[in-house]
């Protein structure tokens, strides 16, 4: 995809033109691309440069910045909130990645076959994904409120809980409650990616597998999953990136609590900037995150590329 297709500048079959015609076409093309170029340069490349510059300055939210070399990076070693958030974010990423893959694949397999009404099920599973992540977090915040939401009554009714479950009150509960929320929100989205992949597998493959006497499980393991690898890789990339950068679920649902137990890396970065007003240190955290994620994405993309050529 990186390689752009080259359109001949001179139309085939057209009589030979003066070279200035070619230059003119180039200028026209450039003119069309100028708005995009401005956006990329001014709103993307310049801010990245700015982030690097800010990360080597003592940069208060209000006041004059002052160059301080690598001090902001050194300070990361003493930033306990951020260090703790690394482990927490990684744990969260591993848990939701497994859940998204398993549940997304299960749903995709369930609604893979076209039969009457299957479209309605696909839509039902996907619908939470069109609700914004912040709105979804707010919705579950109310659901998890025992006085307002029905969940505690429901759990007592089916005998899963006897007392008053505190869904967001302890670190473990807050973590689990958030995982439930994001799984509800994202399962259908990942189902759709995997469903797209499943439908690209030709029917003859399954038939051949059946002729060989393979069981359902053997077919899934040895035929479906290997052929689905590009889609699985896409789910992995999107989920790993999205979860390592998680912000809304914990900012809105748990507010990082209780006792800062659910602070993610991005929340730690956000607090550095807008609670502690230290934009320089926040930028240093941003650069660290950026480097790690670009490296991670590059590795995952390479894996995806290799699969595509199979």
């Amino acid at each position: 995809m990186a390689a752009t297709s080259t359109t001949p500048a001179v139309r085939p079959g057209a009589p030979p033109r003066r070279t200035s015609r070619r230059g003119l076409r180039g200028l026209v093309g450039l003119a069309y691309a100028t708005p995009a170029a401005l956006i990329v340069v001014l709103l993307f490349l310049v801010p990245i440069g700015m982030a690097v510059w800010m990360s080597v300055n003592d940069w208060p939210l209000i006041g004059e910045p002052e160059f301080n070399g690598v001090d902001n990076y050194r300070a990361i070693a003493d930033n306990q909130l951020f260090l703790d958030s690394i482990w927490f974010t990684v744990k969260y990423t591993v848990v939701v990645t497994v859940l998204y893959l398993v549940i997304g694949l299960g749903l995709a397999l369930l609604v893979q076959e076209s039969r009457p009404g299957v479209g309605l099920f696909r839509t039902a599973f996907f619908l939470p994904s069109v609700v914004g992540l912040a709105s979804a977090s707010l919705l579950f915040y109310a659901l998890y409120n025992n006085e307002y939401g029905p969940l505690d009554d429901l759990l007592r009714a089916i005998g899963l809980s006897s007392g008053n479950p505190d869904f967001l009150g302890t670190p473990d509960n807050a973590f689990a409650s958030t995982v439930v929320m994001v799984t509800w929100r994202f399962a259908g989205f990942n189902m759709l990616i995997l469903l797209t992949g499943l439908q690209a597998i030709p029917g003859e493959v399954y038939e051949a597998s059946r002729m060989d006497g393979a069981s359902w499980w053997q077919t899934l393991r040895h035929v479906t999953l290997p052929l689905l690898r590009p889609s699985i890789a896409l789910v992995l990339i999107l989920t790993v990136t999205g979860s390592l950068l998680a912000f809304e679920p914990f900012y809105v649902l748990t507010a990082g609590g209780p006792d800062n137990s659910t602070v993610t890396m991005v929340i730690a970065m956000f607090r550095e900037a807008f609670t502690l007003f230290d934009l320089g240190r926040s930028a240093a955290l941003a650069i660290v995150l950026l480097v790690v994620l670009v490296a991670l994405n590059a590795v995952q993309l390479l894996v995806l590329r290799k699969d595509k050529t199979r």
Partner: peptide, 24 residues
């Protein structure tokens, strides 16, 4: 169209996907 910087611009635009949005 062919124009100077075409590939560079396309790759830079795609790089927006690679960069964590909160960091910029």
């Amino acid at each position: 169209y062919e124009f100077p910087g075409k590939n560079l611009l396309f790759l830079s635009a795609l790089a927006i996907l690679m960069i964590p949005h909160p960091t910029i």
